[in-house]
């Protein structure tokens, strides 16, 4: 393993975050606070409790997941797309590093950023509402796995995209709707039976459910199913990345 190279890519990406601090940290935190104010106060005044948890507290895990999902994808996809776009990717391809190491550097950095971001949002939320953390270990595990999985997914998008438009389109058209409909702001059990069934097709439901369980021990689906689903997505993403590197898809002519 070329650890120095992995570290070099990782710190390069982290340095890019520091330069664009407003974009990468401040803006997601602000939008979360806005969600919090709008949904928490407006809806919270009507729905006081969900499954015995105050509405304001109930939405915190979903809001964190929402940011972690979108930011993991945004960071990782941009991270690898940018060198492809400028042409500096030549250096990654001609250096004595394996594709695996490249992924480790980029995805590691993107996931780190999301985890930091998630923690900041959690701390911010703590200023507004009382929070319980029933299972800190599980909480951390869900956070880390989600950050890694969706950073991998973002990496795939960054390789697949051949324009800035394509880079935006999947997060915008698929991820954001799935995240909103994934039970960030409500419990699946509040939906009519038909829509409950449909919701179970939405992968984000499993993430949010498991993550919320680690806070309040309330869940829409069982913990093991949640974990299994994350593991499943992780495996799919790794499989696609393995294929990309085997074939040089979009990277090598």
């Amino acid at each position: 393993m070329n650890w120095l190279a992995i570290w070099e890519i990782y710190s390069f990406e982290m340095a890019r975050t520091r330069r664009t601090l407003a974009q990468s940290i401040v803006s997601p935190v602000i939008s979360t606070v806005l969600y919090f104010v709008v949904f928490g106060s407006a809806i919270g005044s009507r729905i006081t409790e969900v499954d015995g948890v105050s509405y304001g507290s109930f939405i915190v895990p979903g809001l964190i997941m929402l940011s972690v999902l979108t930011q993991s994808i945004a960071n990782a996809s941009f991270g690898i797309y940018f060198p492809r776009f400028t042409g500096t990717i030549y250096e990654l391809l001609s250096a004595p590093i394996s594709f695996f190491e490249i992924v480790l550097g980029y995805v590691g950095a993107a996931a780190t950023k999301s985890i930091i971001l998630g923690s900041i949002i959690l701390a911010t939320a703590g200023l507004f509402v009382p929070l319980e953390l029933a299972h800190p270990f599980w909480m951390a595990l869900f956070l880390v796995l989600t950050a890694i999985t969706f950073s991998l997914f973002g990496f795939i998008i960054g390789i697949w995209a051949d324009g800035f438009e394509k880079l935006q389109i999947i997060p915008l058209l698929i991820i954001t709707p799935l995240a909103f409909l994934g039970g960030s702001f409500y419990s699946i059990s509040m939906l009519p039976p038909f829509w409950q069934k449909v919701s179970l097709l939405n992968p984000v439901v499993y993430l949010i459910s498991g993550f919320r369980w680690s806070f309040y021990e309330i869940a829409d689906v069982s913990l093991s199913i949640s974990l299994g689903m994350i593991g499943f997505f992780l495996a799919i993403c790794m499989g696609i990345i393995w294929w990309i590197f085997k074939t040089g898809y979009q990277l090598k002519n």
């Binding site: 120095l4 190279a5 570290w7 070099e8 890519i9 340095a15 330069r19 250096a95």
Partner: peptide
């Protein structure tokens, strides 16, 4: 474009382990 000369040259060295 956004990197300094020193940083980008040091980065290359790191990539080569």
């Amino acid at each position: 474009a956004f990197e300094t000369v020193w940083h980008t040259v040091s980065f290359s060295r790191g990539l080569y382990g």
